[in-house]
């Protein structure tokens, strides 16, 4: 029991990590888009749990608020709008199944070999330092305020583009 409590954080991290990975596999494998969306939502929530365990609680909160609360709700609405008799809903994989899977596997193997323990330098890794919310806020609003403001320009462009797409859909090109 004491061992369990002492290692609770590591155990939770492992559980969340394996669950997030399983959700990711299900997104690629499941046939119904709605089920894939649910798997993706579970992956995002587990990633939020990982962020919380790492001590960056504000990113965990925004992960759930923005990704699950906005992006995926939007996605689920669109899935419900579409016709379930669409042949794309019945046939899962494109003809590129084997080349695509091979490329992804090769990429994963190459990248993971880069961070695997065997290839790491002999020096013991430094303990994680972490950072506080105050440090983040100072960096965010002192150093990166311009980038933050520029994202508002990006959002404005996105809104205008969405309106333009809707006008094209109505056949109203004026």
């Amino acid at each position: 029991m004491t061992w369990l409590l002492a290692n609770l954080e590591t155990i939770l991290l492992a559980v969340f990590g394996v669950s997030a990975l399983a959700g990711g596999v299900l997104v690629v494998v499941l046939r119904q888009p709605m089920r894939a969306a649910m798997a993706l939502i579970s992956t995002m929530i587990f990633l939020g749990g990982i962020y919380g365990l790492l001590g960056v609680h504000f990113i965990a909160a925004f992960q759930v608020l923005i990704y699950v609360g906005a992006v995926m709700v939007f996605m689920v609405y669109v899935i419900m709008l579409l016709d379930p008799r669409d042949p794309a809903f019945r046939r899962r994989f494109s003809p590129l199944l084997f080349p695509g899977a091979a490329v992804a596997l090769g990429l994963a193997a190459t990248l993971i070999r880069g961070v695997a323990p065997g290839t790491a330098p002999a020096a013991a890794p430094a303990p994680a330092r972490g950072f506080s919310l105050a440090e983040f806020a100072t960096a965010f609003l002192n150093q990166y305020w311009l980038h933050f403001e520029l994202t508002s320009v990006l959002l404005l462009a996105a809104v205008i583009a969405a309106i333009a797409v809707i006008r094209v859909a109505r056949g109203d090109h004026g």
Binding site: A20, V28, R92, F93, L96, L97, A108, I112
Partner: peptide
Amino acid sequence: ALFSLGLAGVVVRRNLL
């Protein structure tokens, strides 16, 4: 692993969503 899975999904799946 998540990044590679996403890449596989983009290449392999048929449905745009």
